[in-house]
Design a protein around this nucleic acid. Structure first.
Lengths: 192, 192
DNA sequence: TCGATTGTCTAGCGGTGCTAGAATCCGGAT
DNA sequence: ATCCGGATTCTAGCACCGCTAGACAATCGA
């Protein structure tokens, strides 16, 4: 039986290699540059091998999205737990979120912009996505205000951050005033 | 000279036809379905004709974006001027914006998501885009608060709306609670 | 009516995501 | 040690994409 186990292990390794390579290529040259041919060449296998692991390019994007969501959740939790008061926590959350979007634009796109074939905001939403939302909600619940549903508040706060992140990255908003925008959002939205 | 004038007129007509057809096709089947072949077939000319009007597909998207921005500006101004008090004006603005995004998703994408080759947030930004932002700012300035720069406030309010619009359309947010999210944004962000 | 210019089309380039079927490798039984 | 059979991987190709060179047709001015 050990032979089969080794094969399974090698297969899992190769799958991780595919996802890591896709992500790397996307961060280096954008998702448009992530073609099945280039990806296959980089992992030193032929194209059809990709399709023995994933249904198609879409699913590879989805895999990157799940990985990214886990990291985003971790980053947010790390940043919020080190802060000492509510206001600092929310500011840290917002800054971490926008930092993540700015430093990993391709991963951010995989999670929030591209079609990775993942179900969102549903019962069968994958755990990493739910958990990323939960990471936001944990902190934001504390500043939602008494008459406001925490989930709804989190959605709105998140949407505001998402708007700033995407509009800034696509050149719709000048990047200089990001900090001031962040302050304004925290000041107005959070009930302290 | 009248022959040349007629030709120019016909050329302009055809250009409008191209933009209108691209827009129609995008709204019906999404931008992915707007291929140069399909577009050429619908306007009953061959592919190269498109390239005598536009540098490429990107510029066609840009043309739709400019048209859409003009309409969005008009819609926002119409909605805000009929309202009687500041709070009603801001609510009308937000609702109109989200309505526009929901009912013309392809046009909204052309303006705010896709690459139409247009310069944003710069001196040479096309007038329709500047004007759409101006339309938002006209109303939002009145509720920015005294210590807040109107431009910055407009950007943040806009980003929040944009976040809700895009996350909702891509299924990241359930569409049912849009009205409550809208109310929350107006309540918290606007200084009345 | 002719020549030149303008306009349009056919055909094709290199690229995309994806897949059928051939070729190869390799573990396990003899 | 050898061979068989199944799993694995590759070659080659599909239909489509954006875009363009060069052939062809239509039209205008002389």
């Amino acid at each position: 039986m050990s032979v089969q186990e080794r094969k399974q292990r090698e297969r899992a390794d190769r799958e991780r290699l595919i996802v890591a390579t896709a992500r790397e290529l996307a961060e280096q040259q954008g998702w448009d540059a992530v073609t099945t041919r280039r990806l296959a060449e980089r992992i030193e296998y032929s194209q059809p091998v990709l399709y023995s692991h994933f249904r198609g390019k879409r699913e590879i994007i989805g895999a990157v999205a799940l990985q990214g969501a886990t990291e985003l959740a971790t980053a947010v939790r790390t940043a919020t737990t080190t802060a000492t008061n509510p206001r600092a926590r929310v500011t840290a959350l917002a800054r971490t979120y926008l930092d993540f979007a700015a430093t990993h634009p391709a991963v951010y796109d995989a999670i929030f912009q591209l079609d990775g074939g993942l179900p969102y905001a549903q019962d069968n939403t994958p755990e990493p996505l739910k958990d990323a939302f939960a990471a936001l909600q944990e902190t934001l619940t504390t500043v939602a205000g008494h008459n406001t549903h925490p989930g709804l508040f989190t959605e709105v706060f998140w949407a505001a951050l998402h708007g700033i992140a995407t509009l800034t990255r696509e050149g719709r908003l000048p990047p200089e005033d990001t900090q001031q925008r962040l302050d304004l959002i925290v000041d107005r939205l959070a009930v302290l």
